[in-house]
Design a protein around this nucleic acid. Structure first.
Lengths: 132, 132
DNA sequence: CTAGTTGCAAAGAGTTTGCATGGCG
DNA sequence: CGCCATGCAAACTCTTTGCAACTAG
């Protein structure tokens, strides 16, 4: 779809790459990049999603989508963990993911979709830093 | 918090009970119950959430919240599976949930939050009915 | 009667779209 | 130069809040 290599597109990708471990919403990205118009942000995110460079999370039913940068395709094979405190994303091992998905498929007859599922909780770092 | 038993409140609960297996957003509920004002819907949902009768899903960062009816408290102990096709919710067994959470806690040092996590995928029913 | 609730309307926030302008190739 | 992409502004949708009217207890 993207036929041109525009400045805007590059800036967006740069930003996404430097925040690869976070799950961001379009509006957050838009605010972080004031030099890009909101419409351009939304349109580019949608395009990147189609290309597979970006994974949209929690699309069903709502408007608000969260994007996760998936530089390579490796991220399609495993599940992601998202810290509710710091927002950082962690990656579940492939073997572990496989076991989890298999288990649910076998016992519950439910096919878990790796790319649209995110497990929420608290990461090691935030749990130790009890400076609440 | 809710000191009065109002008509509105009753209608809302009736609706939620008859859709206990679905994860609904406030606006969807609001549209399904035109006789209740939107503000009343939002305020009651928020109140029900505080009471623990309703579980809010995916609150972090966004505005849009999805509610799941949790008649009892039993739902806090296990994870939920949500079908991307029919929207129905399924419940993972307690033992299975425990194993999953434990495994991630042990291997990744990440504390999965049962109530805010939902696994997305396709349910048995929708997978068999391949009438795309 | 008193306080919790409701409905309406207005205000915010996020997302989408049309259209003229600008820039990649 | 032609077409895609951008920016701006308007239109929408969802959610929140203030306030007066209503009502359960």
């Amino acid at each position: 779809m993207p036929t041109y290599k525009t400045q805007t597109r590059k800036m967006l990708l740069d930003y996404l790459q430097s925040h690869a471990d976070e799950t961001l919403s379009a509006s957050i990205i838009s605010k972080a990049l004031p030099e890009i118009s909101v419409s351009a942000v939304y349109r580019n995110l949608a395009a990147l999603e189609k290309e597979g460079l970006l994974a949209a999370v929690r699309e069903a039913g709502g408007r608000e989508r969260y994007y996760r940068f998936t530089a390579a395709e490796q991220c399609r094979r495993h599940l992601h963990l998202s810290c509710k405190k710091c927002g950082r994303t962690f990656h579940l091992g492939e073997a572990q993911t496989e076991a989890l998905v298999e288990s649910i498929a076998a016992l519950d007859n439910f096919a878990v979709d790796r790319s649209s599922t995110v497990l929420y909780g608290i990461c090691e770092n935030c749990r130790c830093t009890r400076d609440k």
